[in-house]
Each structure stands twice: as C-alpha cells, then as structure tokens.
Design a protein around this nucleic acid. Structure first.
Lengths: 204, 204
DNA sequence: GGCAATTTGTGAATACTTTGACAATTCTTA
DNA sequence: TAAGAATTGTCAAAGTATTCACAAATTGCC
C-alpha cells in the first residue's frame, strides 16, 4: 500500500500527542478529541489511521497504547536501524549529547569526521572519513549529514557505500544520487517559511 | 496574494541551489536546468517564481543574482527579524556556536534559560526565563524553542509575551495558542519518515 | 529586418488531498 | 434482549497542487 507523503508527515505528530496522553494515564481517545490536540481534522485522522489497519472501534474510539504500538511498528521504530553520523563538529557533537532521543528509531552506531582525533567526550567510535568504505557498518542505510565542506563529495561517497537515506543538516545544496532519499532539517529554512507565512505579502 | 504552503517550502530549496550556482559564477539559469538540480518539475518552478512577479525573460531564462535578491526579499531575509533562543542546553548552545548561519534571517538577540548562570562561552546575553516578560526584546516575534521540560508552560509564556512564530526543537507535543505558528524541526520525526518511506510496507 | 530557435508564463486538464455525510459497529442501560 | 447513543471507516464531493500544452516574448543569425 502506498501512503501519501502528507499522511506520512502526520504520523510523527500523532505519535507525540499520543505519548503525552499515555503519560497522563489516558487509555482511550476519540478522533474528535485527538483532532483538538493536534489541529488536524478528525476525518483526516481517521483516514490516516485506517490506512494501516482497523485500529479503532466504532462507538468507542482508539486504545492509546495499542495505537502507539502499531504506529511505532509501522514507522519502523522498533526496527533496529543503524545510523551513522557524518561530520562530528559542533552540531554533530550536540546531536550525540542530546540525550532526549528517548523514543528514537535505531541508534547512531558510529561517526565519521575529517579530524576524528579532535572529537572528545562521546560514547561511540569516531573514524576518519577516509576509512568510511572499510568502517561502514553492515546493513546501514541511514546517515545524518553534518559536514560543513565537501558536501557533494561526501554525499557521493555515502551513496557508493550503501546509504539510501540522508538526513541533511547542512545548509548547502547538493545533488542526490539516484535512489537516495534526502530530508532536509534546516532551521534557517524553517525560519524563512515562518517569516514568509506571517508576512504582509502572504495575505489574501 | 496567497502562496501555498507547498510553494513556500520550495523557496528555500531554490535559494540554496541558486546560491551554489552563484558561487560557481553562473549568471543565468533556465527553469529546465534548475529542475534537474533540485528535482522539481520545471513547470512547477516557473509557476512558483511567477507568483512573486515576472522574474524571467522568455527565450532567455532567469538572472541568478536577481532571482536570489528577489527571493531573499520575499522570504524576509533582509528584514531584520529579532529571534530569541529559549532553552540554552546542549542543543541550544550548539545552535549558537553553529556559525554556518551565513545566509540567515535576522539574528538571535538573546537567550533565556532556567539556569542562565550555567551557560558559558556565548556572545549574547542569557537571561533567567523568569525574567522573560521584562527582558523580551521589543518587536520580537520569533522564538526557537529548545527547552526539555515545562514545554507547554513555556509556550504559553511566549505567546503571552508577543511571540507569534515558534521553531520547535523539542520532541514533545504541545498546544499552540491561537494565532501562534509552529514549525517542528525534529530529526527523529524526519528519520521516521525516511524509514517509513523506504520500508516494504510503503510499496504499491 | 525577418525567420528560426528558445524559454517563460499561464489557462485548462489531470492528479492528489481533505472534508462532508452517513452506514456499520459497538457499548450501555433498562 | 432490544433500543438509544456514540464513534469509526469509507464513499463521494470539494478543494488544492501539479502537469500539460501552447501562446507570447526574446535572442541570434542570415
């Protein structure tokens, strides 16, 4: 089955809201109530959920715990994805130290950097980027890209070594090799969107 | 005029690609060529550009420098937005040190934290979050949210003090007060989306 | 200057997403 | 056990976004 990108982007939103409900001890939720929490129409929510199966009960609603489990399964959270961190400078280092990854998919298994010896105070091995082909973990498909130079070369290197998904934290444009999925996580772009969205230009 | 969210999200992508072209000394670009670079159909690009004015010349293409200037203007980059950083822990601190913000909108003018005295080695003043109402800069509308607890209370506090746009870097769900725009920047959600997108489940 | 080769900008057609409406199902209570 | 209240799941309608197709504009060349 094919899930639309729009739906895909809503699943993590639902998950966060559901986890909060679970924390508060709430066992059951109706689409109308969830709608109020996440600002998404209840029909859209029901349709999104129905794509992964019959998760609710008519006349009753959804079981919070069950919903979380199923969404996590579908989102691959319980799958043990190996992730590598490429570029362990300021930002990369902060990501590693940012221990709020409590509900994380997989695990960052190692890092690569041009100057691995400069990286201090981390719990995973950091290798020289030159050794990437030999040190690349088996079955690793996801890379977090935090380098600040040689972006295109690094991307090509990753693609050549089996990476199919890149989380891009650089601010630079690069060409994604064929078959490689890229998602950009960029605060600056996000701020731009917010500024534009709230600007006078973007009215009626 | 009303620009769709889809279009809005493409502008920063165009900008990055155009800046790279400019760096390479390229003066002119056609929609078909840009299309190849950013993986967006040329018609879509032309329509997106046409929304902000007649930027191209028939038979010729677009002037790279001009395009960058206009997009930056429209995206508010040259507007001097004041931004505050709320929560200066590991991640917040890294954002401040991450000096790659070369093409940034506005400026982070100050930070707020529960333990301001613990924050070392930064160039902007860090205030106690308790003093936010009195220390909030004039005309500041955008906040970057990096706190790891009391998320909802913090959000309410921000809304009460004039913030209308929040860049959310927490992993938690919260209710956005009326009139407040939120954009979530979340690596974990991004990874989820990538995993799902490339998973077996999401086929045909 | 005029004609051929390009390439933009845009109306119309197509494709995709969200929303409205309601049948089907479940729970509760008498 | 049957009737009433509540809420999901889904078909169809409405609303958005993308793509096609081509007219309009520009350049270069003979």
């Amino acid at each position: 089955m094919k899930v639309s990108r729009a739906t895909l982007q809503r699943y993590p939103v639902y998950l966060k809201a559901l986890r909060k409900l679970k924390e508060e001890g709430i066992k059951r939720i109706m689409s109308s109530e969830l709608s109020r929490l996440v600002n998404i129409q209840s029909t859209t929510i029901r349709r999104d959920f129905s794509l992964v199966g019959h998760l609710g009960k008519q006349g009753v609603g959804y079981d919070v715990d069950e919903l979380i489990d199923i969404l996590e399964d579908e989102l691959g959270i319980n799958i043990d994805e190996k992730i590598i961190l490429v570029g362990v400078g300021n930002l990369g280092h902060a990501l590693l130290k940012y221990n709020n990854w409590d509900n994380v998919i997989g695990k960052i298994v190692c890092g690569f950097d041009k100057y691995p010896e400069r990286v201090k105070d981390v719990d995973i091995p950091i290798f020289d980027i030159k050794d990437l082909p030999s040190k690349m973990p088996k079955d690793c498909r996801i890379a977090i890209l935090c380098v600040s130079s040689e972006v295109q070369n690094t991307v090509n290197l990753l693609a050549d070594n089996g990476i199919v998904s890149i989380v891009d934290l650089t601010h630079e444009h690069f060409n994604a090799p064929k078959g490689v999925h890229v998602r950009c996580v960029d605060i600056v772009s996000t701020i731009m969107e917010l500024v534009f969205e709230t600007s006078e230009f973007n009215k009626e």
